[in-house]
Simulated scan of single mutants.
Amino acid sequence: MIWPLLGGLCVLTGFANISGSELVGAQIDLLLQLLGMLSMALFLDAREGRITCSDKRRICGFFIVVAGIGAGSIHFVDECNTVQQQPPFAAVILVGFFVSGLGYAMQAKCNSQLSANIGGPASACIICAAVTIVAGIPTQAYIFL
């Protein structure tokens, strides 16, 4: 019962979006979040047995999205000064975008389980938001300062 309560922690990596979007652009931010969400959804489906290695359509669709993100990123890297001037920092920001996508997908799973445990989606949303706010105070204070 404890891990659904911690669903609010899953989105704390979203802090990367705040500083990273202005440095590397919102397009890459959203694309990498999408990749993270799709990766987590694919992982959860495989874990629950709803998808197997023989389900070629879903797996091919996933790799088409990965190829599209890669193709879009090549053009992006050529134009973006932050990626060229500060590669380690940009790599951390890009990984943060991906991890935040993983967290958003995981939060949805946690909220679904929490909703089933406590009897409703509204209560689950309030608990998740409270966890996110309380746990995010140090990060929000750091970003503010």
Rank of each mutant, 00 (worst) to 15 (best):
M1Q: 09
I2R: 04
W3H: 11
L5M: 02
G7D: 04
G7L: 02
G8M: 08
G8L: 02
L9C: 06
T13W: 10
T13Y: 03
G14R: 00
F15P: 02
A16P: 00
A16H: 11
A16V: 10
S19Y: 15
S19I: 14
S21R: 15
L23C: 01
G25D: 10
A26R: 14
Q27P: 04
I28G: 02
D29E: 06
D29S: 13
Q33M: 11
Q33G: 14
G36H: 11
L38F: 08
S39N: 02
M40W: 11
L44M: 12
A46N: 02
E48D: 12
G49N: 05
G49R: 11
R50P: 01
R50T: 03
I51E: 02
I51K: 11
I51A: 07
C53E: 03
S54P: 00
S54H: 10
S54E: 08
D55G: 06
K56A: 10
R57T: 09
R58W: 12
C60K: 10
C60W: 12
C60V: 13
F62V: 09
F63D: 02
V65W: 10
V65L: 06
G68E: 11
G68L: 13
G70C: 08
A71D: 00
S73K: 07
S73C: 07
I74S: 04
D78M: 09
D78C: 13
D78P: 01
D78V: 03
D78I: 05
D78R: 15
N81T: 12
T82M: 12
V83M: 15
V83Q: 01
V83H: 06
V83Y: 06
V83L: 14
Q85M: 06
P87W: 02
P88R: 02
A91C: 14
V92Y: 08
I93S: 10
I93N: 06
L94S: 05
V95M: 14
V95G: 14
G96H: 01
G96F: 07
S100E: 05
G103Y: 05
M106L: 11
M106R: 09
A108C: 05
K109N: 04
S115E: 12
A116T: 06
A116K: 13
N117T: 10
G119N: 10
G119E: 08
P121F: 13
P121L: 11
A122L: 14
A122Y: 08
S123M: 07
A124E: 09
A124V: 05
A124S: 15
C125S: 11
I126K: 08
I126F: 10
I127C: 11
V131S: 05
T132Q: 13
V134H: 03
V134M: 10
V134C: 12
G136W: 04
I137F: 04
Q140I: 15
Q140L: 14
Y142S: 03
Y142C: 02
I143F: 13
I143R: 09
F144K: 05
L145H: 10
L145W: 11
